[in-house]
């Protein structure tokens, strides 16, 4: 697949955290770890750290790209991070929380406090433009349109093949390998592909 070189371009040719690496956050976090204990002035740096924590099931998209980091703040000498689950039964929820904590601790944020925040419920509208592009390059069609527009107009969005860009695609199943994906097939290049459902 030619996607590998595109991935390199997106990530500046550096090794991608989480790709073929059991300790996902190690590569990028270790370099800026240092011995200094973080304080309130490091909030922007906390966001940078979180941008390197990848989704365990789609390891090219960061938790920030996914829009599941709802708030990063400082209180009582601790960093506070509000994380929202994508689906009620997402089995990666605990793993993501563990990886977020570990990455922050490595970067000098002592005992960060994580809050699992349910409301407002996560929507694919919160996936960043960069996240959508990374999904596409990875071979997963990003969610088409927005949930609010869909509910207002009830219109059908066009799902583009992430491999050849064709609009000639068809749904195979509304359910795929993980809760967030549906299975599609491209009628032009005949390749099957995952579609990140719009919810």
């Amino acid at each position: 697949m030619s996607n590998a070189s595109e991935l390199d371009a997106l990530f500046g040719g550096s090794p991608v955290a989480g790709m073929g690496n059991s300790d996902r956050s190690a590569g990028l976090i270790a370099s800026d770890g240092g011995a200094r204990v973080a304080d309130e002035s490091d909030l922007p740096r906390a966001w940078q750290v979180l941008e390197q924590v990848m989704d365990p099931e789609v390891p090219v998209v960061s938790v920030v790209d996914l829009g599941i980091i709802r708030e990063v703040s400082w209180a009582d000498g601790h960093l506070q991070v509000a994380v929202t689950p994508t689906y009620s039964g997402c089995p990666a929820t605990e793993l993501i929380e563990t990886e977020v904590s570990r990455a922050l601790e490595r970067a000098g944020f002592r005992a960060p406090r994580l809050e699992r925040r349910l409301a407002p419920a996560w929507t694919t509208d919160w996936i960043s433009e960069q996240g959508r592009e990374r999904l596409r390059v990875y071979g997963i069609a990003p969610p088409a349109g927005s949930t609010s527009k869909r509910s207002l107009l009830g219109e059908k969005d066009e799902i583009c093949c992430p491999h050849c860009g064709s609009h000639e695609t068809e749904v195979v199943s509304q359910f795929g390998s993980t809760a967030c994906k549906a299975l599609y097939r491209c009628r032009s290049c005949l390749e099957p592909f995952d579609y990140f459902k719009c919810i």
Partner: peptide, 10 residues
Amino acid sequence: AAIAAKGVKE
């Protein structure tokens, strides 16, 4: 309300 809002989508 929060748990239901999440569940309604599913």
